[in-house]
């Protein structure tokens, strides 16, 4: 019976694996290949949505 703790780990790992796979393609598109040059990606995002970036600056101030 005790060995069924692995069911918990397997189910959890399964869900997390699925979610990571779901989120991976967009990450590859925009950032994963930019290792060490992530600042460029950040700059582009900021230009794309200045208003939301302003919010992002503020959001951490008020958690």
């Amino acid at each position: 019976m005790k060995s069924d703790l692995w069911i918990v780990f397997a189910v959890t790992a399964g869900f997390l694996g699925f979610q990571m796979g779901y989120a991976l393609p967009p990450m590859q598109e925009v950032g994963l290949s930019a290792f060490g040059h992530g600042d460029k990606h950040v700059e582009e995002s900021a230009e794309a949505d200045a208003a939301m970036e302003q919010f992002k600056e503020l959001e951490n101030l008020m958690k």
Binding site: M27, E29, V30, M52
Partner: peptide, 18 residues
């Protein structure tokens, strides 16, 4: 760390930041 990575990936996928 993976949490941050997956959340960021989904934000990009769905096109929002919040």
């Amino acid at each position: 760390a993976l949490h941050m990575l997956v959340i960021q990936g989904l934000r990009v996928k769905f096109g929002f930041k919040n």
